[in-house]
């Protein structure tokens, strides 16, 4: 009963976000697409000689960086619904939601589901583009589905961080300011180069990044393999990051009431 109400409330809020997305298609759907697409083209050209480094595992650079730019769609243009949350708070809409018999979790989950959905077209296009640019791909349809699932998982975790910042600052510009955060996350991971080629300290930082482990799980699907250990680690850190950030976000939403 409680769960079905939570699900139906989240569904209604998801639909509102979806409508919002279709009204702002550039912001909702193009922002996750364009920077990664540019990344796929530019990285594969600029860094093509990187593969000549001794021990570099792929023959062409796009085969290495391709999966990274696919996952970049989960972070590029993040915060769409987080900004909406701040605007709802300013307009009093969030108060209206709080007066309804719904769990505040539903307010976040509905939006979160939209964040997962809105990056999928971009991720699919970038995956196709990477393959078209010469990336090795042996994952088949199932592999692609699994990769998109991991993109959605990371998009939800990453956007949860934006909810925390949005709800703590109540500043519509704050999620925007947070956007460039995807650069350090991207560079401090195995997205650009394998860990054997990194300086030690970056390798250490990257090994602690949840993004690295999701990325490696996705890379495995790209190659058409299945290593349960890699998958389990990727899922564990991905889900762990999502749950932790959601707990913070729900607390931040609750803190709004106490702040008043």
């Amino acid at each position: 009963m409680v769960w079905s109400k939570l699900a139906s409330d989240s569904w209604l809020i998801f639909r509102r976000s979806l409508r919002e997305g279709f009204r702002n298609p550039a912001l909702a759907f193009l922002f996750p697409l364009l920077p990664p697409l540019m990344g796929a083209v530019l990285f594969s050209q600029i860094f093509q000689k990187v593969v000549n480094l001794p021990g570099f595992p792929t023959d062409n650079y796009i085969s290495w960086v391709g999966i990274g730019v696919v996952l970049l769609t989960a972070m590029s243009g993040a915060g769409f619904t987080a900004t909406g949350l701040v605007l709802d708070s300013e307009s009093g809409y969030l108060d209206r939601m709080r007066l309804l018999p719904i769990r505040s979790t539903a307010v976040l989950l509905g939006r979160l589901a939209f964040e997962a959905v809105r990056v999928l077209p971009a991720a699919a296009i970038v995956l196709v583009a990477a393959v078209a640019l010469g990336a090795d791909y042996d994952g088949g349809v199932l592999g692609a589905v699994a990769i998109l699932g991991l993109v959605a998982l990371w998009a939800m975790g990453w956007n949860s961080l934006f909810y925390v910042v949005a709800l703590r600052t109540l500043n519509a510009q704050a999620p925007l300011a947070l956007q460039p955060m995807f650069w350090p996350v991207f560079f401090f991971s195995t997205a650009m180069v394998p860990d054997e080629v990194m300086p030690d300290w970056i390798e250490t930082v990257a090994s602690f990044s949840p993004f690295t482990h999701i990325l490696e799980a996705a890379r495995m699907f790209m190659a058409g393999g299945l290593d349960w250990g890699v998958l389990a680690l990727g899922l564990t850190v991905g889900i762990g990051f999502l749950v932790a950030m959601q707990l913070f976000a729900v607390r931040s939403l609750a803190a709004l009431v106490q702040r008043d």
């Binding site: 139906s8 409330d9 509102r16 108060d95 018999p101």
Partner: peptide
């Protein structure tokens, strides 16, 4: 506190659903 992009009917149905 209204979502300007919804129609009045959509808005009321949305709120009814959440009730």
């Amino acid at each position: 506190a209204l979502d300007g992009h919804m129609t009045a009917l959509q808005h009321l149905e949305f709120v009814s659903g959440l009730w």
